[in-house]
Simulated assay, not measured.
Amino acid sequence: MSQSNSGWVLYEHPLNERLRTLMRLEFLMETASTAMEREAAIDSRTAVEALIYTLNILERGEVRSEIIKELDRLSGGLARMAEHGQWAADEVRKETERCRTLLRRVGEPDAAMGQALREDQLLAAIAQRFGLGAGTCNFDLPSYQRWLSRPYSERRADLQRWLDSMADLRATLDFALRLQREGGQFQEETAPGGSWQRRIPFDNPPIQMLRLQVPAEDSVIPEISGNRHFVTIRFLRQPDTLTRPESVNEDVPFHLARCDL
């Protein structure tokens, strides 16, 4: 996810597969919740597509267990931060209790993890057409066209019902990713000749996510790779969409946050 912020462009890069999955789910649910607030039928289409892509990820059996493991891991990370005095004790207690509440809720059989999406016949029909290019045209799915032709208030009610069926999942994502982002402070860095590398000591907490800010007036694009122990950032420029990105040869200033909660 990238965004502009006070003259800087923000990039986020997860360094493990679990966090990649959580961030993809966050992106899809943000897309759905934003699109459903607009009245045009094309925006309702965008929201429905985001919900079905979310469901496709959730259909992988390990997602719930990975979410539970992440909450368990964060609970331990909060305890470590309290022990080292990195966060105020009251704040740690509040976040720890929130983490335990979510952990109990996500583990329940009736947790809101998208069951209404699985049971909905219209969404099932749309999902079956996703493998075809433009497979949800008007002539492909008359029932979908009829739904899109309904008043916005009715479409929004359905979209809200589908989104509410993932309320516990959304709450967990908001909590887990907020803690990660707040766990890393931005520091000024420079990439000599457009390249930056760091080896992470094995006795340091593993880095979960990198957050990187580059000046908005500069057209540089960061190419980030690495794992919990070694990170490389290479800066590129792409003057226009017809040109392949090229390596930057001059020094590039940027801000970097290492999120290791």
Rank of each mutant, 00 (worst) to 15 (best):
M1P: 14
G7M: 05
G7I: 09
G7F: 03
E12L: 13
P14M: 10
R24F: 06
L25H: 03
F27W: 08
L28S: 05
M29I: 11
R38P: 09
V48E: 04
T54W: 00
L55S: 03
N56S: 04
N56L: 02
I57L: 05
I57N: 02
L58G: 10
L58A: 08
R60E: 15
R60L: 14
E62D: 15
S65H: 11
L71Y: 15
S75E: 13
G77I: 10
A79E: 12
H84S: 15
Q86P: 00
A89K: 10
A89I: 11
A89C: 03
D90N: 05
E95L: 09
R100Q: 14
T101M: 09
L103G: 13
R105K: 14
R105F: 08
R105W: 08
V106Y: 02
P109M: 04
M113D: 14
G114C: 01
Q115T: 13
A116Q: 03
A116T: 08
L117Y: 01
A125I: 06
A125Q: 06
A127P: 03
R129H: 07
G131R: 02
G133A: 02
G135P: 06
T136H: 05
C137P: 09
Q145R: 13
L148C: 06
S149N: 12
P151V: 12
R155Q: 01
Q160E: 08
R161Y: 01
W162C: 02
A167C: 03
R170S: 08
R170D: 04
A171E: 08
D174Q: 05
A176I: 14
A176E: 11
A176C: 15
L179E: 05
G183E: 02
Q185G: 10
Q187E: 14
E188P: 06
R198F: 11
R199H: 13
R199C: 14
R199F: 11
I200L: 09
P201G: 10
F202S: 15
P205R: 03
P205T: 09
P205E: 01
L212M: 07
V214T: 07
S219N: 08
I221R: 00
E223N: 07
E223W: 00
V231Y: 03
T232P: 04
F235M: 02
L236Y: 00
P239I: 04
D240V: 07
D240Q: 07
D240R: 09
T243E: 00
S247F: 01
P253Y: 03
P253C: 10
H255I: 07
A257H: 04
A257V: 10
R258L: 14
D260S: 13
D260N: 11
